[in-house]
């Protein structure tokens, strides 16, 4: 009994530093931010209060409200496209590429991870511009009569995002695929299933955890990102993070920035709740 108690005390001692860190630098700041979101700006003075004025404004002011929808739309499109592109890629690397080249192919597929994140968006801006490589090539090959505008539109933001998240999802789905025993596929084939049926009815469902984990990560990272829409979107519409940074950088309106952040947090939490049953965050 006393040994067990001692064990527990020692266990608790080991966990304590990490818990305290999380408490002090995550939970408390977050609480402070929620408090701040209830304050408001009077002139240039932050007045602490307990009103929901900022939240009311977020849902009544068309520009702020639209930010939520812009963010959700972009994130949804990015998540779906990325999954659709990444799954076949992961599957091809895991099953079609000869075993000795597999890690090499995977490494190549995620190579741009190691460019600086800020630079990655910037290089898309160079690629997608009217004088950029893509337009030059398309016009040069006669596929387009004249350049079309991609840069400084939502499409540019989406392309920049999809590029990053295809890499991320390829990784999560690949690691899920190679853990599957080939026996499943063989068994299904023996029972007379066609190749497509095997993929659709056997392999696809089995990779759902990998897909969902990756999709959730995509959702969280995408909806919270400031750099990509800021560099590629041409300021023609503003996402939630851009609105938050606008409140901070231009107006010093901490209360409104906090309220928008709380809204962002709620959205992510809802997304988490929606796919929680497929997620094993502890095993990422």
């Amino acid at each position: 009994m006393s040994i067990e108690k001692q064990e527990k005390r020692q266990g608790a001692t080991l966990v304590a530093p990490a818990l305290l860190w999380t408490l002090g630098f995550f939970v408390i700041p977050f609480a402070a931010m929620v408090m701040m979101s209830l304050a408001h700006l009077e002139g240039r003075e932050i007045v602490q209060g307990h009103d929901l004025g900022n939240y009311l404004r977020i849902f009544t002011d068309p520009s702020l409200r639209r930010g939520i929808f812009v963010s959700l739309e972009i994130t949804a499109v990015v998540t779906v496209i990325s999954v659709l592109l990444a799954w076949p890629l992961a599957w091809i690397i895991a099953t079609r590429v000869p075993a000795r080249w597999r890690r090499m192919a995977l490494l190549l597929a995620v190579l741009p991870f190691w460019t600086s994140y800020v630079v990655r968006s910037y290089s898309w801006a160079l690629v997608l511009g009217e004088k950029g490589v893509v337009m030059n090539a398309l016009v040069g090959l006669g596929l387009l009569a004249e350049p079309v505008q991609i840069m400084a539109t939502r499409s540019a933001t989406i392309i920049g995002f999809v590029h990053f998240f295809v890499m991320l999802l390829t990784l999560t789905i690949y690691s899920n695929l190679i853990q599957l025993s080939p026996n499943y596929a063989r068994a299904a084939e023996d029972l007379g299933a066609s190749k497509w049926q095997v993929i659709r009815l056997v392999i696809l469902p089995l990779t759902l955890p990998g897909v969902m984990t990756g999709a959730f990560l995509t959702f969280v990272l995408c909806i919270g990102d400031y750099i990509t829409p800021q560099i590629l979107g041409g300021n023609n519409e503003l996402t939630l993070p851009q609105l938050i940074m606008l409140q901070l950088g231009r107006r010093g309106d901490f209360p409104m920035a906090s309220a928008l952040s709380v809204v962002l947090m709620v959205i992510v939490t809802l997304a988490y709740a929606a796919c929680a049953r497929w997620l094993k965050m502890e095993r990422v």
Partner: peptide
């Protein structure tokens, strides 16, 4: 759950909270 929680929060939110604290 508490130890894992920051993983599901946007960096921007963590940054803003810390900045204010």
């Amino acid at each position: 759950g508490l130890l894992i929680a920051p993983m599901t929060v946007s960096y921007l939110i963590i940054a803003l909270g810390l900045l204010q604290m």
